[in-house]
């Protein structure tokens, strides 16, 4: 009889641990698993989207610095949906076109408007890049505590059960503690990738944003030179 009992209690697979846990611990475990799924979903999604963004930036820079006419580039890009540098370029060109079509008077006002348009687009793009990274940070910092909460509750209940069974045998004590520790394990399992992924992805997003800001500054300088070249003859003609 004793051996049968020992065999039953020694069956400490992950599934049996999960099933023997209490309701609170189960909820904590399920929530942590969901957090882990969400974390990995974000990490996969961001990694892929950042790769896409980087590739587009490379393509756009290649086209932009190829010597192609800005008018032509604008015409081709404005017809399709653009992201990243393309969006910035399109926004700046659109503002430029509008100003010239309606007859801009002062170069300084035109310059400011173009820069504003580019800033707005840049902010929108960087927000898109950094979206959902905040939830990664939240999971990374909160998951260990949630797991610890599950562990504490599980150990509490198991100690209460030990007190009821009036036996301090390690075979009686161990399963409850192991099951409670599983919650912390799952919490750490979700938190560690979240923290690492957050650091990596936020760094990547900052790099991409910095790259787009640099392009915006550069393009702003080009447009400023163009404004001077195009407005001075007009003023001279008048």
């Amino acid at each position: 009889m004793e051996q049968v009992g020992l065999a039953a209690t020694s069956d400490v697979t992950l599934w049996s641990l999960f099933m023997e846990a209490g309701l609170v611990v189960k909820l904590v475990m399920v929530g942590l698993v969901a957090a882990s799924i969400w974390t990995w979903a974000i990490i996969v999604d961001k990694t892929m989207s950042f790769g896409r963004v980087r590739r587009r930036l490379d393509n756009f820079e290649e086209i932009f610095w190829s010597g192609q006419s800005l008018e032509e580039l604008y015409r081709t890009l404005s017809e399709q949906k653009t992201t990243g540098m393309g969006a910035i370029f399109v926004a700046a060109m659109r503002e430029w076109k509008k100003s010239f079509e309606r007859g801009a008077r002062t170069p300084i006002g035109l310059q400011q408007r173009i820069e504003k348009a580019m800033d707005v687009t840049l902010a929108r793009e960087s927000e898109e890049l950094e979206s959902r990274l905040g939830s990664l940070a939240t999971i990374g910092s909160a998951a260990p505590f949630i797991g610890l909460f599950g562990t504490v509750v599980g150990i509490m209940t198991s100690f209460q059960a030990i007190a009821g069974s009036q036996s301090t045998n390690l075979a009686v004590v161990a399963p409850g503690i192991a099951e409670a520790l599983l919650a912390t394990a799952i919490g750490l399992l979700a938190a560690i990738p979240a923290v690492i992924g957050y650091n990596k992805l936020s760094g990547d997003a900052n790099k991409i944003t910095a790259r787009m800001e640099a392009f915006a500054d550069e393009f702003s300088a080009i447009l400023s030179r163009q404004i001077d070249e195009k407005l001075q003859p007009r003023q001279a003609a008048e």
Binding site: L14, V33, S36, A41, V44, D45
Partner: peptide, 28 residues
């Protein structure tokens, strides 16, 4: 995002089911 969420969920389910079923209790 949906695609990545689906991939993440499937990977988790696969890993967990593999762990729960194949990873029996540690040796006594």
């Amino acid at each position: 995002m949906k695609k990545s969420l689906a991939t993440s969920t499937t990977v988790h389910v696969v890993l967990l089911s593999w762990g729960l079923l194949s990873l029996s209790g540690p040796e006594r």
